[in-house]
Design a protein around this nucleic acid. Sequence first.
DNA 1: CATATAAGTCAACATGACTGACTTAAAGAC
DNA 2: GTCTTTAAGTCAGTCATGTTGACTTATATG
Lengths: 164, 164
Amino acid sequence: MTDLKTGANLLFLREEEIRQGVELLFYAYRDFTGEPDKILARYGFGRAHHRALYFVGRKPGMSVSELLSILHITKQSLSRVLKQLVDDGFIDQRPGDHDRRQRLLTLTAKGAALERELFVRQRERFSRAYRAAGAEAVNGFRKVLAGLADEPPPALARPPISGK
Amino acid sequence: MTDLKTGANLLFLREEEIRQGVELLFYAYRDFTGEPDKILARYGFGRAHHRALYFVGRKPGMSVSELLSILHITKQSLSRVLKQLVDDGFIDQRPGDHDRRQRLLTLTAKGAALERELFVRQRERFSRAYRAAGAEAVNGFRKVLAGLADEPPPALARPPISGK
DNA sequence: CATATAAGTCAACATGACTGACTTAAAGAC
DNA sequence: GTCTTTAAGTCAGTCATGTTGACTTATATG
């Protein structure tokens, strides 16, 4: 117990601290995704479908390339799940207003309902965690997560809510 | 702008806050795993191999069932990657001291070297994020992540370091 | 001795990712 | 008005990682 503050010991503490973070991130992500997966299976969908539903719901009218740049997957991978979602009536496509090459994506009522069903579970999980940790902790949570990603995550702002 | 504090608006703010958390978690995990994946590809390994290396390195002498209970996958899935790691000399197996049915897992020198190579990248990423966010934020980060997981994550304590 | 447990195995299958090559339609540049 | 680039989709093949189900082997435990 005599070398608690030596450089090597500080380094060890630092590494231990970081490994705890790595593990917490793994456990949180594992359980956070595990719950929706069970619901999706009932529709014959998987995690990839969830991501598409989520982000299209988040920004209605998003283009395919915009979605690709969020997901960081190939268009071949995306087009498979997108095709299923469109064929099954969960997502609508329409040509872009200014650029008619684009296919702008929106959720159908059916798609919005499924997205909501999935989200309420995750919202409940987040609510519990946020409540238990407190407002200050939530701020720290967001700061660190933002720092872990490669770039500042894109705004993803909803188009302004229309009407008065 | 007159109804900023109505119940419906509070609910909207709450949902918006949670969606931001969901997205940050997605982006952080996406980039956090993306980096090691490239290194692993050079060895013909994938993310599943990384997880096994990581947790065996974290608790040397861990049994197969212990690893299974952390990863939440089937033993058939695990045994595939474990077999590769053992065959390629990254992990050693030995029978348990008290229970000879067990196969206790440890990293070989080669395995420890690869685990370290992968970890230093993730450590760098975490260090950056931790530094930028500050000590208080790190505490909040951990609190919220712990709350997001199903159960309090297991201790995962290293066996006490032997010697004098 | 009977049963339960730790681990592994064989087989078949689904999902979601990848590369590479190609097409179509529309936009933008000159 | 042609040329080039871009948005999107398609076809084909491959790989990694997960699943279920059935079964074996060795050892531990009641």
